[in-house]
Design a protein around this nucleic acid. Structure first.
Lengths: 230, 230
DNA sequence: TGTACATCAGTGAACGCGCGTTCACTGATGTAC
DNA sequence: TGTACATCAGTGAACGCGCGTTCACTGATGTAC
């Protein structure tokens, strides 16, 4: 490896290290991540961090992109070795939930309240769509295999928008199916956030995975996927 | 009115004024609400605020309770004059959504990411349950009127927990129905948060109320309520 | 009704802290000839 | 291979700001007799 290669590698490692420490700080500071605190933990001057990230917001953006990529990758891995369209969908949901439980602060960063004064740049858009894209692809497979009982057609402006989304995906999926698929994603995010943000406290305490799967199977039923036993 | 009554009233008014200004600040600062900034806006010394709230967290708690009460009241008003169990449920959902769109920062305060370092005291629990209680009461009415097609029984530990919730409500509602009702609440919160926090951007832009109602009607179907046209 | 006292709202200074960002700099590492 | 130069990571001081909370205080308002 050339000398320049070494320098680049060391730089990449340092960048990762800053992000790792910053992720730890998400737990205590949430999105008011403090650059100085991160630098302090790394034993370096706060000004040195600016060699790696032009500003606090840029560091935040890097963390957001990493988080979207991590949960997206977890969703994509989830269907490996799983047969049956419904079970594949449920597997994606469970994988997302498990990632979120392991990384609650990263979950809050991407699916929680927006950070005041922070505007996400366009680099985040691609990674942000990985989970929904995975869900769409499971449903599309099922649809193309004839495994979906498509519900009654829908009308109205939102139906047109959903058709436009289908067209954008280059797919023949009908609008009501796109709608049910997006509803599943919305419900999934809601179920994870409800659990993490405390809305389930004092009601479902013990068997949260069970309740989560119950919800995912309900969502699958609305999509028109066949019911299976877990 | 006695002199003491006047003093109490002035005090109550001042308390309200502080909260009103603080609510405005939620927009720019989120949950890192600054007591000093609030005092500045009110033209008073920051120390004066301590006559009304013992600490920043106590002010935050007051805002949280008010927010839960406001969205709860909106949910409770929503069914007035609405007949039909399904439509009553949808009306509750739409009312919650509308409140949230009008008060996005209050929504984020109660249903968004938890505030780092803030522990909600027990006073918030009661107000926090008003929306779900309203949904439960709509479903219970429907069930007792024989208007619900109850789904297949569920088993497992989460089913036991849901039965316990039903018992706590002093109701004969079966566990699967409690589950579907809570799932509706979770989906409702998820749908509102998805819209407010940007998960719907670049997909459903134009007819979000339509898509929201589509989701609520799907949730009603899972509960076993009859389908109606909107 | 008048007076002495207690209560209470609000002030302004201070404590001790933290923050993001900039800037001139040092010294090590890499590059070009 | 050796040397002059350029690049780059990291330092430490500084700027200008904000924060929550405490404390001794002033002055107005209410209360008890």
């Amino acid at each position: 490896m050339s000398a320049a290669g070494v320098r680049a590698r060391v730089r990449a490692e340092m960048t990762e290290e800053i992000k790792t420490v910053a992720r730890r700080h998400l737990a205590s500071d949430g999105a008011n991540l403090s650059l100085r605190a991160v630098a302090r933990d790394l034993g370096m001057a706060s000004s040195a961090v600016y060699r790696y990230f032009a500003s606090r917001d840029e560091l935040l953006t890097a963390l957001i992109i990493d988080a979207y990529d991590a949960v997206g990758a977890a969703a994509e891995r989830a269907t490996e070795g799983v047969t049956g369209h419904t079970d594949r969908l449920v597997a994606v949901g469970l994988a997302v939930r498990e990632w979120a439980l392991a990384e609650p602060y990263q979950w809050a960063l991407i699916y929680g309240s927006p950070v005041p004064g922070y505007q996400a740049p366009s680099d985040t858009v691609g990674p942000a769509t990985r989970v929904i894209m995975m869900i769409v692809s499971v449903v599309r497979d099922a649809f193309e295999a004839g495994a979906v009982t498509v519900g009654p057609p829908i009308t109205g402006r939102y139906a047109d928008e959903l058709s436009a989304v289908a067209a954008q995906l280059g797919s023949e999926i009908p609008a009501q199916l796109v709608g049910a698929t997006m509803a599943t994603f919305v419900h999934l995010c809601g179920a994870v956030s409800a659990e993490l943000f405390g809305q389930l406290d004092n009601t479902v305490e013990d068997d949260r995975p069970g309740f989560f799967e119950f919800q995912m199977r309900g969502a699958a039923r609305l999509i028109g996927l066949p019911e299976t036993r877990s």
